[in-house]
């Protein structure tokens, strides 16, 4: 039976699963659109993974991404890590000498600086998601171009048009303005890629020492236009790893492998994941004036975990008597 480490990255736009073997080599990767349903996407992804790897035993599970807690409860993850650490670990696994990681995902972008394989500094976009995957998706849809071809259009351009990249709303109105003036679509797309690269470097890279080798990963790394724009601006080669779009999941699997050693995995098993009906619910707790919005994940009506309660009493109620949880339910009404 194939022994694997499972890594899951549940992002805003995509949900990715990877299986690593005991030598930490990538066996299989699954990339799916989250489509607003992280639980369903994970189930689907796991089913897909199972169809490709008929017989396997899970030695450890790592979860990352903004939906990591939800999915960790569902899978029984051994390691739950933030995306920054996961991406850095993933990048350093394939390129041990990497000193800079650009990661642009669906909703956020990160710049990670490493020295000797260890994160020494990082930056994340602050309030605005301009220039991330969801903005590019939206623009591709508006222009009627499949997102996979977006970057290829950009490199066909003879001369990029100047687009304002500071803000997603400005960029879109600028693009529409240029399009109505008659600029070819290729040149507008190339201009957008340059604007986004400029914005990224200005916003995240300010005061940071960007040293080669640079690895560019995350779903947006598929965009050849953006990669070229970075190369032009930094005047250095930008590497895009083979599994660029699932590096977070790979990192999560590696972290799980690192933390497992000899202890048994708390993985809940394929039947638990695939045969169960999972459901998420939210409620407003009236136990105190904080009015926390508490989210719970259920399987066949049974609660697996609670999230979002500041005081943690909902979460703690899972481990305590039924009376306490009944009282809490009353407080929610």
């Amino acid at each position: 039976m194939q022994k694997i480490y499972l890594g899951v990255d549940v992002g805003s736009v995509s949900t990715n699963l990877v299986a690593l073997d005991t030598r930490l080599q990538v066996l299989e990767t699954v990339y799916l659109r989250t489509m607003g349903h992280p639980v369903k996407a994970t189930q689907e992804g796991f089913r897909e993974l199972q169809s490709r790897l008929p017989q396997f035993e899970v030695l450890g599970v790592g979860a990352t991404g903004s939906g990591r807690n939800l999915v960790a409860a569902m899978l029984g993850a051994d390691e739950v890590k933030n995306e920054i650490t996961a991406h850095a670990v993933g990048a350093a696994h394939f390129h041990p000498e990497v000193r800079t990681v650009f990661e642009i995902g669906g909703q956020d972008s990160k710049l990670i600086l490493l020295r000797d394989g260890v994160v020494i500094d990082f930056a994340m976009n602050t309030v605005c998601a301009a220039g991330t995957g969801s903005f590019l998706d939206q623009q591709a849809l508006r222009l009627g171009i499949p997102i996979e071809e977006f970057g290829h259009w950009a490199i066909r351009a003879r001369q990029p048009v100047r687009i304002a990249g500071r803000c997603g709303v400005f960029a879109e109105s600028d693009m529409i303005h240029k399009q109505q003036m008659g600029y070819p679509t290729e040149e507008i797309i190339a201009g957008l890629c340059e604007a986004l690269a400029r914005n990224y470097l200005n916003n995240l890279g300010k005061g940071k020492e960007i040293l080669p080798p640079v690895v560019f990963q995350g779903g947006v790394a598929a965009n050849l236009g953006l990669r070229r724009a970075f190369e032009k601006m930094l005047n250095m080669e930008i590497m895009v790893p083979e599994h660029y779009n699932v590096m977070g999941a790979i990192g999560a699997a590696l972290l799980a492998a690192e933390s497992m050693k000899d202890r048994p995995s708390s993985f809940r098993g394929a039947d638990f994941i695939l045969d169960g009906e999972f459901e998420t619910r939210s409620l407003e707790c009236n136990g105190c004036p904080n009015q926390c919005e508490v989210v719970s994940i259920h399987r066949q009506g049974q609660v697996l975990a609670y999230f979002g309660d500041r005081c943690r009493r909902w979460d703690a109620s899972l481990k305590s008597s039924k009376v306490v949880s009944r009282e809490l339910k009353k407080a929610a009404r």
């Binding site: 890590k81 920054i84 990082f122």
Partner: peptide, 15 residues
């Protein structure tokens, strides 16, 4: 905030 704090503490420990 949690993601950033976690990543920051991770960074300090790994370093």
């Amino acid at each position: 905030v949690v993601t950033r704090l976690e990543a920051f503490c991770d960074m300090l420990r790994r370093k």
